[in-house]
Simulated assay, not measured.
Amino acid sequence: MTRIPLSILDLAPIGYGDTAAGALRNTLDLARRADELGYHRYWLAEHHLATGVASSAPAVLIGLVAAATRRIRVGSGAVQLGHQTALAVVEQFGTVDALHPGRIDLGLGRSGHRRAEFAAKAAAAPEPGSTGARTVNGLLIPPPFSPSGIARSPLLALTDLLLMQPEARSPDFVQQVDDILALIEGTYRSAEGTQAHAVPGEGADLQLWILGSSGGQSAQVAGERGLPFAANYHVSPATVLEAVDAYRAAFKPSASLEAPHVLVSADVVLAADESTARELASPYGLWVRSIRTGAGAIPFPTPAEAAAHRWSDQDRRLVADRLDTQFVGTPPAVAEKLRVLAEATGADELLVTTITHDHPDRVRSFELLAAEWGL
């Protein structure tokens, strides 16, 4: 098959023993290398109150990455829209676009909107491993993950408390997307008919994306508004096919997009040989466990720390879907798994994320993949 565009998702991970400043310097270094290697996009995630992740202010970090690179598109994967107003988002990204026109992607996610439904569904969600895995066109679709542990997390509640003004509530997600589109297009009117102009932001050459993990509201609004859609195999592999199918079913052509356009993410670790790749990836399960128990992402452990951890059966079930769907190995082996992912989902682009304890190993992983993919 023709190799489709390949991009990078970066969380600015903090390795055990490192600092946030070190992680941010590593992000700029990796972004420069990605630009040289031919990756298509460089997206920054948004995480809060996580001691192991430094990407808490994506708009700021996107501006720094755009300034440090020359060609590559830079964007958010994704802005947690439930904690922002439409105007604030347009002004932030419009500011970056004003200095780096035509290179900025604005990826929007529903985080912050989903808290109530998240908690409501937690009790009814199946336990990890309670239903069987399946393979679709060669792609592993694991059992669904139960969010019960995260939904009960005091840290999750504190995150909402600290990110929102007292008595504030998140507007409707669809309305926020429509407001962002209107502010960029210069057509915004209040219910009373008052015009508003975002400066910077109005007329910005931003590419707007919706990110989603299921066939719910995110996939629906992306399709109905004719926007490109990013589906998260690396976060929610059990529902990736449901997400892309719902998006395509809802799609209506728009001025910017005539046909559905899908990007799919994957977690990968590459090395020159299988055993080295497995060792580099070995702390991943412990890191995912910290997120799924509601404690927040910890500094990424060393392989030695990971080897010393004593796993319970419950812990193994908690992270099994993420471990089973992480693509780890030599360049040809990982490239083949990415090919299967692209064909099974019909992806137009792929987005890969890699975390290792040592920064040079992460850079080398992306270098090996770029060479194998033919960037």
Results as ranks from 00 to 15, higher is better:
I150W: 15
S265F: 09
A320N: 09
E192W: 02
A259V: 15
P200T: 07
I4Q: 04
R73P: 01
F366K: 05
V89I: 12
G138E: 05
E274A: 13
L241M: 08
H359W: 10
G75E: 01
S254K: 04
A243L: 01
E117K: 07
S148P: 13
T135H: 15
A238P: 09
V90M: 10
R110K: 13
V199Y: 07
A370V: 03
D324E: 10
L155K: 05
V269F: 07
R25S: 10
F300C: 07
R169H: 14
F145A: 08
A249D: 12
F173D: 00
Y233S: 04
A222F: 00
A133T: 07
H357N: 07
F93T: 02
G186V: 07
I180T: 00
L106Q: 02
S170G: 05
R278Q: 13
L206E: 00
A23N: 08
G77S: 09
A20K: 09
A78Y: 00
W287V: 01
L156S: 03
R41Q: 05
S153Y: 03
V240Q: 01
G138C: 14
G112A: 03
A297R: 02
R169P: 06
Q176F: 02
L206K: 01
H261N: 13
R71E: 09
A277T: 05
L49N: 08
A230W: 06
I150H: 15
A67I: 12
T302D: 07
L318G: 03
G346V: 12
E117G: 11
P237Q: 05
R32T: 13
A333H: 13
V221P: 05
R41H: 08
P299H: 07
G17T: 02
A371D: 05
G138Y: 13
G77R: 06
T239A: 10
P144S: 10
A122C: 11
L263Y: 02
L44V: 06
G285P: 04
G216E: 00
L263N: 08
Q176H: 07
E167M: 14
G203R: 00
T194Q: 14
V177S: 00
D348S: 11
G285S: 12
F93S: 02
R114F: 15
V96W: 00
I180D: 00
H357G: 02
T330W: 11
G77V: 06
A196P: 12
L30G: 01
D358L: 15
P303G: 07
T293L: 12
A370T: 04
